[in-house]
Each structure stands twice: as C-alpha cells, then as structure tokens.
C-alpha cells in the first residue's frame, strides 16, 4: 500500500535535484544530465497519475512515451551542440560561452 503522495514526493525531490544541477553546474554536459533527471521526474508523475487515477485509459502512458521520445531527441541534439562548441571554443564551460552577451 503506497499512497500516491509518496510517488509525487519522490518525483518532486528528483525534479529539485535536477533543477539544482541545471542551475549550478558549469559543465554543459552536467547541465544536460540535470535536464534528463527532470524529465525522469515528470515521467514518474505521469505514470503514478495514470496508475492511480485513470488506469483504464492509455493517455498517461502515451504521454510518458512522448516525453521519452522528446528526451532522446533533446539529448542527441544537445550533445551534438556541445561537441561542436567544444571543437570551436576548446571548452564546454557555460560561463565562458558569452559571445551573445556583449
């Protein structure tokens, strides 16, 4: 017997950890890892609500599958961008990538 709120609390904690990673890390790859953690937290929420509120409909699982798809596309494009930036600037530290700032 696991109440729905435990899943939601786990998801909130995972989302907060990922958010901290996105806000506080300097390395662009570490920021992408934080984004992946946040997407996982969203998926836990979706599956928990599917199981507890609408287990007879497929909308929750469908949505989670789309989040999975978008996460895969986002990781591929993001890592390609990081490799391209590394090749041009010799660094993936986001504090040094300030070309658009001035």
């Amino acid at each position: 017997m696991i109440p729905l709120s435990w899943y939601l609390l786990l998801s909130a904690a995972l989302f907060s950890v990922g958010l901290f990673g996105v806000l506080a890390r300097r390395n662009a790859i570490a920021i992408l890892m934080g984004v992946e953690l946040m997407l996982n937290a969203v998926n836990i929420n979706l599956i928990a609500f599917w199981r507890y509120l609408t287990p007879d409909r497929s909308v929750g699982m469908v949505w989670a599958t789309f989040v999975l798809t978008v996460a895969a596309a986002e990781a591929a494009v993001g890592l390609a961008l990081i490799i391209s930036i590394y090749r041009n600037r010799d660094s993936v530290n986001v504090e040094e990538l300030d070309t658009l700032k001035n």
Partner: peptide, 19 residues
C-alpha cells in the same frame, strides 16, 4: 502535495493506496 493527497498509507480513501 501534502494539501492535496494524504501522506500516510490507507485503504483506498482519497488514494492512500493504489486503487
């Protein structure tokens, strides 16, 4: 979350356990 759903497990009143 604490306002919306109970934090302690219980028989399926207000989703204290999986229906």
């Amino acid at each position: 979350i604490g306002q919306l759903y109970p934090l302690v497990p219980g028989t399926d009143t207000m989703l204290g356990s999986a229906p």
